[in-house]
């Protein structure tokens, strides 16, 4: 069995060249991308099972001697394909700024404190229902140099693997109701409003743990639908 991956599924992805996000100008292809048939090379993809992660890798609040400062949150959801079938055993990696909006990366030197108890990186593997869960702190907004007084909305970076290398996805999870949304060219690089809102987690009272942590639900839908027999003569 294999899966069909219509390129139409990509229609709501951002355009490579999105001038409002300045860095795209010199880093996006100028010639049209070539469409090629999906061969075994595209229809297969790496598998990282539960041995790729260790217990606790999904808890960003327990990686150091003390607990990080900030609002403790639970971020959880399901990884699904386009027919909303769970993607199990998917490696999910995330990284984020600390509660003050500062990344531990040396390149981030903006004047906000680092937190010695927070790195901001985690990973996990989805279970048989495609479910994943992280415990972390809510990242802060931070300034960047794209345009005068530019600030990124609070977000968490996600990296996910699906059934094949064409369903590989790197995205960002945003928080509901962020007042910075209208001003962020990265968020708005997805021009379709419904598609854009698929990057916004929903507040999840049901899974909020009393006296401990707010929960946010973020489902991730990857390319891939229509399980069909793999025809050796026609890998479209």
């Amino acid at each position: 069995m294999s899966l069909i991956y219509p390129t139409k599924s990509l229609e709501n992805f951002p355009k490579h060249l999105t001038p409002g996000y300045k860095s795209t100008v010199k880093r996006s292809p100028t010639k049209p991308l070539m469409i090629i048939p999906h061969t075994l090379s595209e229809l297969t993809g790496p598998i990282y099972g539960h041995n790729a992660v260790q217990e606790g890798d999904n808890d960003l609040t327990k990686q150091h001697k003390g607990e990080p400062l900030g609002e403790r949150i639970i971020v959880h959801g399901q990884v699904l394909d386009e027919d909303r079938r769970p993607v199990k055993n998917a490696l999910v990696e995330l990284w984020q700024a600390n509660a003050c909006g500062r990344y531990v990366h040396n390149v981030d030197q903006h004047p906000a404190p680092l937190d010695p108890n927070f790195t901001g990186a985690g990973r996990t593997v989805t279970d048989d229902n495609g479910a994943y869960k992280f415990i972390t702190v809510k990242p802060g907004a931070y300034p960047w140099g794209n345009h005068p007084n530019a600030w990124r909305p609070n977000h968490i970076h996600f990296s996910v693997f699906g059934h094949s290398f064409v369903s590989r996805l790197v995205t960002q999870m945003y928080f509901p109701g962020d007042y910075l949304f209208p001003f962020d060219p990265i968020f708005n690089s997805v021009t379709d409003e419904k598609a854009r809102n698929r990057m916004v987690a929903s507040f999840d009272l049901e899974n909020t743990v009393p006296d401990w942590a707010l929960a946010f639900k973020f489902d991730i839908v990857l390319r891939g639908r229509e399980a069909t027999p793999l025809d050796n003569d026609d890998h479209h």
């Binding site: 139409k8 990509l10 951002p14 990186a121 790197v170 995205t171 997805v190 854009r196 698929r198 990057m199």
Partner: peptide, 21 residues
């Protein structure tokens, strides 16, 4: 109509999450 989650940039700070070593 596709319902997949859109892509976003990996940004400048991915290294500590994706290629730490």
């Amino acid at each position: 109509m596709s319902e997949i989650t859109p892509s976003q940039t990996v940004g400048p700070f991915f290294a500590y999450g994706l290629t730490p070593v």
